[in-house]
Design a protein around this nucleic acid. Structure first.
Lengths: 192, 192
DNA sequence: TGAAAAACGGAACAACGCTCCGTATGTTGA
DNA sequence: TCAACATACGGAGCGTTGTTCCGTTTTTCA
């Protein structure tokens, strides 16, 4: 099944992934492709042949961690005292993931050309997990607000995305506040 | 007191403001400075002498509307049945303002070089207003969560900032959810 | 009216993601 | 073992940003 790839492509791909992970961790996800290519000791052409777009590179780098987050969902649901607690725990796991990657913002936001791929991966992988958690918490009666998983994860993502170091702002508290709101019925929307 | 400005600077400044307002409304706030300069019929140099940075231009264009939003605060507080209702109304006013400007995102987010000025204007002008509303709603006992005005406006801004047309996502509902959460005490933060 | 002062226009710069193609290198059949 | 072919490589270069710089034009006022 394996189409027999040349030795150098294998080597370069690995070098690129390692370099990208290191560079993204150091200089933030906003690091330039040139920086990554240089760190890997390859040219731009090579980088782009392996990862046709900046986003593809990111996808490759973060795929593992996203998977881990997704897989933690069912585990938390089994372990936590109530489904709502599991939901809250999982959301915070997600927040931690996003928050530690300095500058995933531009990624989370799919609008800017080129970042869509990673955004999509986030959604494809995490929405189903959140969906289960949310339904469980609704079934248990803890969550009464009518909200779709997509809406919730997107909201949380938006909240965390642009977070930078700021002593006056603790995203986690805000996210908790949002989740807390799910336990209350929503008031009428005021006239705009 | 007026330092006696030349006639052409006055004329060009007006042309630039008008053009910018029109272009921002048409092509979104992300429109290029070149586009604005062209629309105003002036060169780049002129634009930059009047507005040393892209953000300064935006500040000039949106100042009125931000002021209007700020001034609506006390009025709503006086008119609404309860302080909490006023708070919710005002927040939605703010959301409407942000949401109608297609692409204020990059502006709200001060991190990207050049957009800081407008972000600062938002905060300087609106935080005090929100502060009053929030204190009133806390005093009336409706709001029990401990949250600072800056945290709240920033959260709402973050939620709205990247909003694009999306039938599956209604920001206003999410924001309402967040505000609703203010009426409940916050649970312990789960271990990260 | 004629300099001096002030403002103008737009070519040019740096940084970005991304493309292109001449060159080097790994693979394979004889 | 060794050509010759497919494949992959490197990095100069493109198009797009916001912004700067400076030779030229316009306005002002003695």
């Amino acid at each position: 099944m394996e189409p027999k790839r040349r030795a150098d492509v294998e080597r370069n791909e690995r070098a690129l992934l390692d370099a990208a992970a290191k560079v993204f961790a150091t200089s933030g996800v906003g690091a330039t492709v040139r920086e990554v290519a240089a760190a890997a000791g390859v040219g731009m052409g090579t980088l782009y042949r392996h990862f046709p777009t900046r986003a593809d590179l990111m996808v490759a780098v973060y795929r593992h961690q996203i998977d881990a987050c997704a897989e933690a969902g069912p585990a938390l649901l089994a372990a936590a005292p109530t489904p709502f607690a599991a939901l809250l725990d999982w959301i915070h796991l997600f927040v931690d993931f996003l928050a530690t990657k300095h500058g995933v913002a531009k990624v989370w936001q799919g609008d800017a050309a080129g970042y869509t791929a990673l955004h999509q991966l986030f959604l494809d992988r995490l929405v189903p997990v959140l969906s289960d958690l949310l339904h469980a918490a609704t079934a248990s009666g803890e969550v009464v607000a009518d909200i779709k998983p997509y809406e919730l994860i997107r909201a949380v993502g938006d909240l965390v995305a642009w977070t930078v170091q700021d002593p006056n702002y603790d995203v986690r508290r805000i996210v908790t506040l949002l989740i807390t709101g799910l336990r209350q019925p929503q008031p009428e929307r005021p006239a705009s």
